[in-house]
């Protein structure tokens, strides 16, 4: 066995390579700047992680605030729509007509116009007693009229307290402004 072992390796052995060698302390000290870098990098990474965490917390808070504000906006939009629906209903011609009828209003079919420029009265003043002019109950459909005017009954005491003769009233304190002699135009013109 030993003879074989002595003769078996037929190829040349490679020259022995350098084996482990001792490292001097001086060369070990030379790596310390790397440690510094590693330390700095670690601290930097930690810093970034903490900053990220803080930013994340802040962002999350802002997201919640944003969601809350969006909810508020939705609520306000709903409120705005509810009020708009109510205003639409109350200002609809159907509600106004019914209200005027309940109040016993009468449209005077004998309009009288004053021309300031010509100092002239057009038309004959007549009391609005014609039943033809009485505002009629509403006949026009409106399925989206959800609100109607309430408390339209004028207290009798208030009616009685009204002056019987307007001519005896004192002149209005507000000055009358001339519009240059033109009959005031209708706001609907």
């Amino acid at each position: 066995m030993s003879a074989i072992r002595l003769t078996a390796p037929s190829r040349q052995m490679a020259p022995a390579r350098a084996q482990l060698r001792s490292v001097s302390l001086a060369s070990s000290r030379a790596v310390s700047p790397r440690n510094k870098i590693v330390t700095m990098l670690t601290i930097g990474a930690l810093g970034i992680a903490i900053a990220n965490l803080v930013l994340h917390i802040l962002t999350s808070t802002a997201v919640y605030e944003l969601a809350s504000l969006q909810q508020q906006a939705r609520e306000l939009n709903t409120t705005s729509q509810i009020i708009a629906d109510e205003v639409d209903s109350l200002s609809s011609q159907q509600n106004l007509s019914n209200s005027a009828q309940k109040l016993g209003m009468i449209a005077n079919s004998n309009p009288v116009f004053l021309s300031i420029g010509k100092q002239k009265v057009y038309g004959k003043p007549t009391a609005a007693l014609d039943t033809d002019g009485r505002v009629a109950r509403n006949l026009i459909a409106n399925s989206v009229m959800t609100a109607t005017s309430k408390d339209l009954n004028v207290p009798v005491a208030e009616v009685q307290a009204a002056p019987a003769n307007v001519a005896t009233q004192k002149a209005a304190t507000a000055p009358v402004i001339s519009n240059g002699g033109v009959i005031p135009a209708s706001p609907t013109h």
């Binding site: 449209a107 079919s109 309009p111 116009f113 021309s115 057009y122 038309g123 009959i183 005031p184 135009a185 209708s186 609907t188 013109h189």
Partner: peptide
């Protein structure tokens, strides 16, 4: 109503 609303004098 037209004459009244549009302020047409008699």
């Amino acid at each position: 109503q037209v004459l009244r609303a549009y302020r047409v004098p008699p």
